[in-house]
Write a protein that binds this DNA or RNA. Structure first.
Lengths: 235, 235, 235, 235
DNA sequence: GATGAATGAGTTTTCATTCAT
DNA sequence: GATGAATGAAAACTCATTCAT
């Protein structure tokens, strides 16, 4: 019934499974990845200028310079594309944060300052990004997929800030004192302040000043931890 | 089978033309105003649950129990309805703020506390309202009409808070010291914190606690103004 | 709070419920029903010439001379329109069958002949109708909505034919003899023959002859019931 | 970690160009023919479950486990593939019919019974096949290519049945008596009955019984040719 | 003032087909 | 010969808006 030689199957088995392990991405695969990237960036740009509502596929492909079917080739549908953009933005955000953290001295007060600097930096706090963040937040309702990407100051960030404050006070790292702990309050306070600065930038970007924003935050920090922060650091 | 009096049919015949001829102008106007109100509230509710994107006219009139043409009768178009809703929300917001302010002792620290209480109160900080605020903010791009209503912590509010801080320090009310003034920083800081609390409520309403939020804010205030605020006030 | 006079509500209650009982359909309602009908007929015609595959909304509205949105106004979506067409066709089919039955002498052999005449009549067996029936049958898979409308020789029809045969043989109407009963076999046989004639018409309408078809059926009937049917009746 | 011999990589490098250089022409051709067959069967299966409408290229290649371009490699386009499937089904049908005929005694009544048995057999009358036949018939409109394959009871079949009836009656084979001939009528009648049985199976496969179907047909045959058929043959 | 049938522009999505690899 | 990324025409559907009643 089947009298094909043995090596026929061997060849097929190899072709289908192992071979690709040893191959670098082909030119074709690179191109595909590039197109996907183009789509993500184009969508982000359209959202930034025209909002989620204005982000029609027509606008997106026009911006990307790609063909109509591309969206459904790389993403199942428009919704999935938008979710991918949200994730993309979040990845970029954390990438920038980490860049600031790793290029800064590891002492807690410097790490905290690095976070503040990062959040107020041109890389993170810019018209395009902030518009996109707020656009996605505006789409968050009833636990949809955006929710998990809309939050930048998430658990990991909170933990990082909290540990820094604990280290700063040279305290044993224990949360036994509960959430009423000054470190916990300082953490939530700082994150709330940063959030407020974003909001201020979003709504009044013409009046907004990064230096002033930093000073306002340092003013609060110096109130709580006068031995570790003072206004001169912010100016 | 049908023993309704003759004039009933007459009445119906009239109905087909214009029954409102027999209504007093007030009645007619009342009904109209009522319908307008229904439309505003229905739109707000739909935005709260389904977002701006989900707020189609079909959904809105379904929620309001009104007819399709109603929207264009009371508002020029859907856009105008949405802007009206934004304004409506803003009015309700300031109404609540003022309620808290006028029912509180006029001393500055109490007025500031009243603002904090108001911003964290069930009346202002609730799922429906916050969803709507963030929905509108998500639609703010390129100077459109929403922008002017999306900001709650606006110039008037800033002024109110600033004056309170000035009064608190018993300083002459002058901004000569410029924006580097501690009162100015405290003002921006407090508003940023309040903004951050809203954001925290929006993104993590299950973990959010009004009492804790207030304590966090008071912790910051007591750091800057130890003679005027302490944590006992927040607990 | 609500001080509108009593008759206000009375008026509303009347308007909303009772009034329409006494009104004949308005011109507007008539027009709407007419448009619905146009849509059904246009769809049927398009299916007849271009098949289900060719029945795009564009083709349908072009045929009906109506606007694009009409389909979704009268039917939720295209699928529902197609199902409505199937039901429509079925209704017309049974209407024609009944016309033949009621205008024919009630004796069983005449009623049976009436059914045969009806099934082979121009009203029922014509290019348009048959194409549509076969088109819908082609769409029947996995228990979808078409299934229930695709069958013309259904339970009611079977019962009608079966009763006629029973009456013909002057037998007590009982199915105790089970399905092996000659009347049951004759019923299924006749319906199968009719079905076969439709199929023959569908596939070879150029060669098909109604007279011949009738004779073929009568040939079979006269074999089973020589006392009640003979070939002269079919010629 | 990687101890595969050197020529393995060489082989891969070759793979990228044209591994088939090393395959014997027969092997290559076998594979091609196999893929073609896979495509035909996959398409048939998809049509059986999802109808012609559901038979998109995406579904077909998914079912066949082949690549997207395959369809246009083996067939000019999708339409041609569908026509090929229709022909394929028809070939299988006649193959089955002939199997029944050649394994049966050549006397006319047995040959006729063989046709009936074949048409009602599991090989020919099964969910998959019948769905496909009806799907193709549903696509027959305005003289398209399906038409010539959609008819199973075609001229050749008619001739075969007619000759059997003629032989049965021991008559000289002449059609001089025209279409009014009993043999002609019996032929059309039998084919119509078979058609009707298919239709019954298609629409009511749960109630359908092959044995009963055969009895119903034999009932009709015994009516026309009492000396050659009786019900005992069908039971 | 109120209604809701009708419109058609614009949206997302599907899909056969092409073609560089 | 085989692959699957890319294309864009055409499909179904949504929706704000209009307007006769």
């Amino acid at each position: 019934m089947d009298n094909r030689p043995f090596y026929f199957y061997t060849y097929n088995a190899i072709c289908q499974y192992d071979v690709f392990m040893f191959q670098t991405p082909t030119l074709r695969e690179q191109k595909k990845a590039h197109n996907r990237e183009l789509l993500l960036e184009a969508t982000a740009s359209v959202i930034a200028t025209d909002g989620i509502t204005g982000a029609s596929i027509t606008r997106i492909i026009e911006q990307a310079g790609l063909s109509r079917g591309m969206v459904h080739l790389h993403f199942v549908n428009k919704e999935a594309l938008l979710v991918a953009v949200a994730r993309h933005m979040r990845e970029q955000y954390f990438h920038h944060i980490n860049e600031f953290l790793t290029t800064t001295s590891p002492q807690p007060q410097y790490q905290l300052e690095a976070i503040i600097n990062a959040e107020l930096s041109e890389q993170i706090l810019n018209r395009r990004s902030i518009n996109i963040w707020y656009a996605f937040r505006g789409q968050c309702h009833q636990e949809n997929a955006y929710m998990q990407y809309a939050d930048t100051r998430d658990a990991a960030m909170k933990d990082k800030v909290y540990r820094a404050f604990v280290q700063l006070l040279n305290r044993p790292e224990s949360r036994q004192e509960g959430k009423q702990d000054i470190c916990s309050d300082a953490t939530y306070g700082l994150l709330a302040l940063l959030e407020g600065m974003w909001s201020d930038y979003f709504l009044h970007s013409d009046e907004f000043n990064r230096q002033t924003a930093k000073r306002i935050i340092f003013r609060q920090l110096s109130g709580l931890f006068p031995n570790h922060f003072d206004l001169t650091g912010a100016m």
